[in-house]
């Protein structure tokens, strides 16, 4: 248990160190601000597209940290040291997803509050967006870690990561941004659960294949 805590603390610290979380928030807000410029200052229109725009920006922002999540540790031999200590690699990757979520989701959800204000969303809509992000970001974090592991060691990993992550994140976007009440939220939670349970195995297999 204390090993798990040690691993999570290290990864959360890395997530916030060097302005990593701030970068994600800054990028997210900038992407959101582009929409009024592109569409025009029509309040009704902006309020209608607000939730969707926030989700699109969140997906794009989720791409930013992908190349820092796994690749540096593959290069530095970090996973070798973890392996000789007999720690289970899928479990280590699950903890990494938890840590990434802790470093990624809370700042993003705060920034989404600001974005909701920019779009003039009403209280119910803000609540829906925040609930959607709360349920959807674990899935996004799992996808980011899995993608980071799959693209570790590739040249141009950032571009490949985008091609890999965005299509897989499409279901999250559909149910997250959709306006169909609790049914959509339940499906979103189910998707997140599926991704969080599946991604550690995928990521561990990818790291093992890089090691050999």
């Amino acid at each position: 248990m204390s090993a798990a805590w040690t691993l999570i603390a290290r990864d959360v610290r890395r997530g916030y160190a060097g302005g990593g979380a701030g970068l994600v928030c800054g990028f997210f807000l900038l992407a959101v601000i582009l929409f009024p410029f592109a569409i025009g200052p029509d309040r009704m229109m902006l309020a209608r597209i607000g939730a969707g725009a926030i989700w699109v920006a969140a997906l794009l922002a989720a791409l930013l940290p992908v190349d820092r999540l796994v690749a540096p540790d593959c290069e530095s031999g970090w996973f070798d040291q973890v392996a000789v200590r007999g720690l289970s690699l899928p479990l280590v990757m699950l903890l990494r997803i938890v840590a990434h979520w802790l470093a990624f989701a809370p700042p993003l959800m705060l920034a989404a509050l600001v974005a909701s204000g920019l779009f003039g969303l009403d209280g119910a809509a803000v609540l829906r967006v925040e609930l959607g992000l709360l349920l959807g970001t674990p899935g996004l974090a799992a996808l980011a870690v899995a993608t980071g592991a799959l693209t570790a060691g590739l040249r141009g990993a950032g571009a490949v990561a985008g091609l890999l992550l965005l299509p897989l994140a499409l279901p999250l976007l559909i149910f997250g941004a959709g306006d169909d009440g609790m049914g959509g939220a339940k499906l979103l939670a189910a998707l997140s659960l599926l991704l969080v349970t599946g991604a550690p195995w995928l990521a561990a297999a990818a790291i093992r294949s890089v090691r050999d």
Binding site: S2, G18, S76, Q81
Partner: peptide, 20 residues
């Protein structure tokens, strides 16, 4: 392969591994 986080202090990063 060093596998020590470059930005943290030597004592901290070695303690991380010792805890594992």
């Amino acid at each position: 392969d060093l596998a020590l986080d470059a930005e943290r202090t030597l004592a901290d990063v070695l303690t991380f591994w010792a805890r594992l």
